[in-house]
Simulated assay, not measured.
Amino acid sequence: MTRPKDLDPSSNPRALLGAELRHARERAGLSQEALGAPLFVSGSFIGQLEAGTRRMHLEYARHFDETLGTDTFFTRNCGALAKSKYPDHFAEAAESEAIATAIREYAPLLIPGLLQTPGYARAVFRAYQPTAPDSVIDELVTARLERAHILADPTSPLLWAVLDEAVLRRVVGGRQCMAEALRHIAALARKCRIIAQVMPFTAGAHTSMGGSLKLMAFDDAPPLVYFEGSGTGRLEDDPATVVRYELAYDLLGASALSPQESLALIESVAEDYAHDDQP
């Protein structure tokens, strides 16, 4: 049998690896459930690997090579594709984000990474790593801004962000930096490229006071929810969990200011920062 060639990293490597997995599984006459059972993962998880929405870990790759008779194809390519410019706890979420058709995010403290300006991102990373060399901060900022390239498409993915009012009021990088950052969000909203809402302080308690929340939907795979903390992150595909947090996000949107009211507030705060007269 001819051994499959290594994948071309210039394309979408995770999707290509998933396509190879589907081809090899079907050639072996196995269902998704049968392939996943020895790994104690569901058939839907195998489907997500095949669709490219989940990252293939090395232990899975070794099992696939042994079960499907693919020599070391999956092991080799899995190792190569595991290298990421993002922190380990966020790498898989960033890869899923890049192929999502819809992203819904609640941000309690900071402007979401996809919406950050260079100055804002730099201030965030410098706060996280106050003694890091400038070259390290430059690399982090570049990687973060590259993620935002998905917004170059005029329609996909749908990006809906609910920002806590604390995001607007916390001065990150100085007042002029905040003016620029908020104007950037307002410009995207005015171009109808994103939906932005603000959760005002006056709303009181709400469904996501425990932290940030990101929901991602895909064309050919089940949705995912991502939770992130300080230096940690968890990607979850359990259907009941996803449904619970989809409801939480719906309730967030219902409690937040309308998109029109939110845009007015964002622009007003930006102007206050720009004129340096906000109390």
Rank of each mutant, 00 (worst) to 15 (best):
224 L>E: 02
256 A>D: 01
231 G>K: 07
229 G>W: 15
221 A>M: 04
249 Y>F: 10
218 F>E: 04
223 P>Y: 09
233 G>E: 06
222 P>M: 03
221 A>Q: 04
231 G>I: 06
215 L>K: 09
254 A>H: 12
254 A>K: 08
238 D>E: 09
249 Y>R: 13
232 T>N: 12
240 A>Y: 11
247 L>P: 00
230 S>Y: 12
235 L>H: 07
247 L>I: 10
259 P>T: 01
241 T>V: 10
238 D>H: 14
244 R>H: 10
227 F>P: 15
244 R>D: 13
223 P>E: 15
217 A>L: 07
256 A>Y: 01
263 L>P: 01
257 L>W: 02
253 G>Q: 15
235 L>R: 06
244 R>E: 14
264 A>H: 01
259 P>N: 00
223 P>N: 13
225 V>F: 05
228 E>Q: 05
222 P>W: 05
255 S>C: 12
260 Q>V: 08
246 E>H: 13
248 A>M: 12
251 L>R: 13
257 L>H: 01
226 Y>I: 06
260 Q>E: 13
240 A>L: 14
263 L>G: 10
229 G>E: 08
254 A>F: 02
227 F>H: 08
215 L>F: 15
229 G>D: 04
245 Y>N: 14
247 L>F: 05
228 E>C: 10
247 L>Y: 01
231 G>H: 08
259 P>Q: 00
227 F>A: 06
231 G>Q: 12
227 F>K: 12
215 L>P: 14
217 A>S: 14
243 V>Y: 04
230 S>N: 05
226 Y>D: 14
265 L>Y: 00
244 R>T: 12
224 L>F: 03
217 A>Q: 15
241 T>P: 14
243 V>G: 05
260 Q>K: 09
256 A>K: 00
231 G>M: 05
218 F>K: 03
238 D>M: 08
231 G>N: 11
230 S>P: 11
238 D>P: 04
246 E>Y: 07
231 G>A: 06
258 S>H: 01
219 D>K: 11
236 E>W: 09
219 D>A: 15
224 L>C: 10
215 L>A: 10
232 T>C: 08
234 R>S: 09
250 D>Y: 12
238 D>I: 06
226 Y>K: 11
231 G>R: 03
